[in-house]
Nucleic acid binder design. Sequence first.
DNA 1: CAACTCAAGCTTTTT
DNA 2: GCTTGAGTTG
Length: 719
Amino acid sequence: MNMLTQKEFFLSVEKFSAKKLNEKQKEAIVHTEGPLKIIAGPGSGKTEVLVLKALYLITVKGVNPKSIFLVTFTRKASEEFLSRLVTYAGALKAKHPELSFEAYDIYSGTLHSLAIRVMEEFQYSKFEKYRLLGDFEREIFIFKNFYEETKKEEFLPLYKLFEKEEEIGEELYLKRLSLLSLLFEFIPQNNIPSNRLIKEEYLPLSIAGNLYRKYVNLLKENHYIDHTHIEKLFLQFLNSEESEIFIEGDGTDYFPGIRYVLVDEYQDTNPLDEKIYFTLVRKSKNLTVVGEDNQSLYRFRGAVVDCFINFEKSCEKYLGRKAVKVELLQNYRSDKQIVAFINYFLKRHKSHKDYKLSKAWERLSIEKKILFSSGVEAYKATENSIIEIEGDEEELAEKCYYLVKELKGRGIISKYSDVVLLLPSTREDKFAGKVREVFERRGISVYNPRAKSLIYQKETGVMLGALLKIIPEEANIPESLKETVAIWKETFERESSEELKKKVKELSSAINPENLNILELFYQLLSYEPLKSFKENFLISVNLARLSQLISSFSQMVEDKNSLIQEFYRTFLFILSVKGADLQEVKEVPQDMFPIMTIHQSKGLEFPIVIVGDTENISGDWRLGKLEELFSRFLKSYIHDFSWERSILDAVRRFYVAYSRAQYCLVILRKKELLPYDKNRPWKTAAFPGFDLRWYKKFTEKFHRKVKNGERSKNRETS
DNA sequence: CAACTCAAGCTTTTT
DNA sequence: GCTTGAGTTG
């Protein structure tokens, strides 16, 4: 294939790339051989760099697209990457007709999707037998197979580490099941060898090992596989002879082998992922990772930020090479005041006098400062780019409403989707629900696709209520399920037609437990009002379809008719009510709706105006720290002396991500009055903007004084 | 208003 | 199991 020179490449790129590339970005693009670590702060154009790097490899270095393996963290990110890649590739080809390559040939996607694609493509012998367990199905699988194990005395030494002594009964068993579900991901994600666990003298460890092994065997026996074990299997594939053509190629253009591996969001990599990446590049050594330690948000999912922090060390250890480091700290997204704010926010926590994050910080982050770009300025409507609003939940929701309405009324924003409300959780039994209520009462629709609200929809309520009426009640309903069951039944009573009620009565008297088919009942009920006319609304019928899908996977997993009813209540309904299920998501946020998102969901996105709520929330899953402590000997790096600091650090990072999504205006909601000083929990009174107006005010005053005095930041962009 | 006591609560997501 | 928020005490 014809190739471009580096100069030609960058000259062409300037024509279609949105912004002029800075020297650091160019450096990251042209460094192709050997390991490379790109530290990419918020808004530093890392997707652009990744896309251009892939194109550079193809058009300048003459690399076959099929030998590039590019991993993104989410499907959405992968779509964004591919669409930009194809657009740019088109532009390059138009300018240089001599180029001929197919951008789509790149291996790009999430690690899971790539693992499946590769194992299918290269017909890995061990893969074909498995059926993939989704999240919901996996939960059902564990409930079904491990319920009895939660009652066994012999496993108590493990369970007790996570329980209060007085706890008893059904709720306790359910808690244990949820612990097991966590455990069966934790062990493989951290590459903990089960054969060594089993031999441990400390009982909780050997019990965990045995239970995990049982899980793995049960998966195998039933020909199932879950997401974590897809990765495990992929690693096995990479270490087997069968992967030779894939990794090393056969000399043809058809199988060129993997020569370049690029990984995005590397700060959220777990040790299992890490092993996969280093195995992929064991020959080529060309591994590029992109990330930022402070945006590590997925510890609950096994992410170990150390993989990113200590990337250089791992390169020396596994590849025998020194990694090159490039820092992209120029922020092209946010207004100057917002950039100053996010830097200050981090700095404040790092050196706070009341709690020492400094130690955690030293080990788990990289010293740096985000730089602002002088070009990013807009919305001069307010004096400050940062606004703080205080009040109780009701007031905050109201004030949010008036703010959004005012912005639209004054023409500062053209559509509601220019603003976003970011929250740690968007479930509607919390603040998000209040916001929806206030907004919709006053005529602005709210778009909150991740509210886990499928089971609270009218249509699903009627359907589940009807099914509950038909299927005889299981005596042993867990307490926590009773409330939701009542809601479903009530929805059924309120919303259903006489016709439907009659049918339900008829079906319930004719029911035969030995011959129960829940899915069949579901379809029968669909022909009665109001379910019948629900089907005419697209979104509603999609929701019903999702429910039928869940029922279908459940029915398939419980073959034993004798336990079907029991499992329906104890497992299916319980998981449904506890974990919830999401509504169908629309591709683009509807413009005339006000969007609410989780902070996690907002990662990688940017919005003109960002409102952040629940800013005092620092809660985390305590079981994680406990698990890390329990398995410390087997972990890549466990740091003993600051476990509680980790939850603060996690929270700091969560809000850092939220704040850094804002382009022109950041609104912070403060829920509570300032609490009196408490020496046992100093962060409550000092740490988050949600708790202390003073430090935020101090920041603003200082910022404006600086601007007034004409004092210019040393770190200002040069352009 | 600092210090102590005690019962209630415990999110986030990849395919 | 640990943190949190409300309530109590000195």
